[in-house]
Computed example of a mutant assay.
Amino acid sequence: MSFLGFILLGLICGAIAKAILPGRQGGGWIATLILGVIGALLGGWLGGLIFHVGYNGFFSIQSWIIAIVGSIIVLLIWGAITRRSGSRA
């Protein structure tokens, strides 16, 4: 997968992950892009480590599922961090 394809995959999967998770997550499009790309990387790493699967290409459903699951994990972690730091202020 090309670098631009990976960025686009991360942006779309980050937006899908935000839509799936209940509640309100902070951050705009830039934060969604960054968290989505980090989530896609995390999903690919975990998928390869645990299930021995990886990215097959931009239009592969396996790539999309890996990236969405990784983005959801990253958004949950991000929400826990921002919720904890927001309660102290």
Rank of each mutant, 00 (worst) to 15 (best):
L75T: 06
I50Y: 04
Q25H: 12
L41W: 14
A19S: 08
I20K: 00
F51W: 10
L41Y: 14
P22R: 12
S85C: 00
L49D: 05
Q25M: 10
G43Q: 04
F58R: 00
A15I: 08
A15Q: 10
I30N: 09
W64D: 01
G26W: 08
A19Q: 04
A17T: 02
S71Y: 04
G57I: 08
V74A: 06
I7V: 15
L42A: 11
R83P: 00
W29H: 04
W45S: 08
S2Q: 08
I34V: 15
T32S: 12
G28R: 10
G14L: 11
F58N: 01
L4E: 04
F6N: 08
F51L: 14
A15W: 02
I66W: 00
G57C: 09
I81R: 00
G47T: 12
G39C: 10
K18Y: 12
G48E: 07
A15D: 06
F6E: 02
V74Y: 03
I38Y: 01
R84P: 03
A40P: 11
L42V: 14
I66R: 00
G27Q: 09
S71D: 08
L11G: 09
A15C: 07
L42E: 02
W64C: 02
T32Y: 02
W45G: 03
F59I: 01
G86Y: 02
C13K: 03
S71V: 13
A31C: 08
S2G: 13
V74F: 04
W78I: 00
L46V: 15
G70N: 07
F59S: 11
I16L: 10
V69W: 01
G28S: 10
T82F: 13
V53R: 06
A67V: 06
G44L: 09
I20Q: 00
L49N: 05
I30L: 14
A15L: 12
L41A: 13
I73G: 01
R84L: 11
F58V: 05
L33R: 02
G79A: 05
W64N: 01
I20T: 05
A17D: 01
W78L: 04
S87N: 11
G28M: 07
L21R: 07
G23K: 05
L21W: 09
W64K: 02
A19E: 01
F3R: 06
V37D: 03
I50P: 06
A40W: 11
G26T: 15
I81M: 06
G57S: 05
Y55D: 01
L46Y: 12
T82L: 10
G70T: 14
A17E: 04
S87M: 14
H52F: 06
I50W: 07
F59L: 12
L76F: 03
I72A: 03
I50H: 00
L33V: 13
I12H: 03
S71G: 14
L9K: 12
L49I: 06
S85V: 14
I61T: 09
G79I: 13
S87R: 14
N56L: 03
R83K: 12
R83L: 11
M1R: 12
T82A: 10
H52M: 02
R83W: 10
I61W: 12
S60E: 13
I72F: 00
W45P: 01
C13R: 05
F58M: 09
G70Y: 09
A19C: 02
I66Q: 06
L11T: 13
Q25C: 03
